[in-house]
Design a protein around this nucleic acid. Sequence first.
DNA 1: CAGCACGCATGAATCGTTTCATTATTCGCA
DNA 2: TGCGAATAATGAAACGATTCATGCGTGCTG
Lengths: 336, 336
Amino acid sequence: MVGIKEVARQAGVSVGTVSNVINRPETVAEETRTRVQSVIARLHYVRSESARQLRAGASRLMALLVLDMGNPFFVAVASGAERAARQAGLVVMVCNSAQSVSEEMDYLSLFAEHRVRGVLVTPADPTGRSLDVLRGQNIPFVLVDRVGGLDDTGCSVSVDDVAGGRLAARHLVAAGHRAVVYVGGPPELPQVRDRRAGVLAALAEAGLPAEALIDVTAERLDVAAGRDAGARLLGLSPRPTAVFCANDLLALGVLQALFAAGVGVPDEIALVGYDDIEFAAAAAVPLTSVRQPAVAMGRLAAEMLMDETGPDAGRHEHRQVVLQPELVVRGSSLRR
Amino acid sequence: MVGIKEVARQAGVSVGTVSNVINRPETVAEETRTRVQSVIARLHYVRSESARQLRAGASRLMALLVLDMGNPFFVAVASGAERAARQAGLVVMVCNSAQSVSEEMDYLSLFAEHRVRGVLVTPADPTGRSLDVLRGQNIPFVLVDRVGGLDDTGCSVSVDDVAGGRLAARHLVAAGHRAVVYVGGPPELPQVRDRRAGVLAALAEAGLPAEALIDVTAERLDVAAGRDAGARLLGLSPRPTAVFCANDLLALGVLQALFAAGVGVPDEIALVGYDDIEFAAAAAVPLTSVRQPAVAMGRLAAEMLMDETGPDAGRHEHRQVVLQPELVVRGSSLRR
DNA sequence: CAGCACGCATGAATCGTTTCATTATTCGCA
DNA sequence: TGCGAATAATGAAACGATTCATGCGTGCTG
């Protein structure tokens, strides 16, 4: 495998000069530079990133660890982060913890071994201890879709999930529903809990008792779990008239279950999702949903990370950005 | 930052021994091993992957470069690949070329610099020259959803797109349609061309002329482009009765456009998509689609790559695996 | 004309591991 | 008792880049 030494030899210069041609071309005389560059091209020389990083210290990798790659919401976050990072010359490596704490720890260790420039993470571990491996290596991270823990608070970008839940529930209550089924996921997830809290708040505002919230808990936050939850909520009596799901995948699953059972949406049951993924608008019945600014979150998170690791990282201040969600009303919640 | 040297010093052993504790624990005495391990834990020592890779030569990274992360089909491919790779102790880094040749080249160069173990790629560049940077570094790659070029043929996993197109068109012809609109994407993409060829074959089988295929070309293969194409095909005269889209995202977009125009599906226009993504079944009208074994493709591709780079890579033989697609009939193509 | 600054190139030291030939120690067995 | 084998640990040489103090020659300035 041809290295910098071979290039130097064939170009008749020292390795230091070749390195300069690559990294600080302006410090090398025109004539030398082109000669070296042509040798590089001729030999198909490709610099070894591991050697570079070992000596220079800094990696060009930024990691993004999401809860569920199957969820278009996270795909949108990833694309926002990727765009911002690439403008700064970084590559984003996107990984999927699939909501498993052990997967998450595996990945974070790997990131630490790679000495990545920084990590954007939507933690699966509610305790936040899995991030210790990053803290130990002084690898900065930004929490995405989750505000910091108690003790130390680094940067984070999130959306006000309580407000989102409230928006959804207010909308349903305003349409005359006196009880709301909340199809949540694993209760360890703060997003799931916060959205539920928003529902409770909205019910209280309307003078309804806490019992007006009926919990149906899905195993995971995906379409299959939603179908399952949908079947279960049809068994409730009295049959609910309003259903709010912790995300759109669940809502689409619920919708399929209701469809299969011949239950009309929105006539018999009004349905609201969360995230406003692209497919929500294209659903069997266009889905009312709480929109999160996913791409912006990804972009912001990446920018904050780069500020923290960039040239003037000294003057970096941790920020906890909280964005506001927005209700998008479509057919699934509109009584005809 | 604590390195192997510091661990060795505090444990009272040589660096070689520490390395052995990490990489070949069975070769070091029980007592020494636990002592070293406890020092590692106490100091939060994390090995430097770049140093490891520089010396040992082999990376633990496998790259996956897809055409469009926004397409659930590729997400499924990624999850199949990831699962297989992780069982072999590799991490997959998923990147998105977004069908841009220059993005693709950037990423492939980066992979080459990182000396990744191998690359799974759905090439955006139809010439295949962008893969030269990998060939130059002897980095093996597996083509996903695309058979090899002309000169050299490495491994590939693909689905018979001609057969898929034929399945879709046969289905429409059997339902009595005498002409079919094909909503394709960028004609450089072999997938787009092959599916079209399948349509032509099915029309020929049925004794229909080639003019029975009407082309509508979308800019990209996503929902927005589909909406656009949908609006355009409504301007055709006579108005078509059957539409086949190069993928489900386009089909969902077309569906939205038809919906917006008040055109009934399947009554006025029958619609067939491709990929059978999860959201096809949940669409406004459940979408008939050609199913591809996406997860299996990802898994197979990763396995083939690992065979090529694994312990007995010497006996590796390149294979071009072609899988068969399957038609899933749903409401969007069933005349009531 | 001495002195200085500047532009360019050099080459050795360094990053943190792995690997391997070598040494030291113990053990079993004739 | 002596010897070969097996077992543990050592320490130095890579791996392939970056970086930096150094040297050399040129042109400018006072």
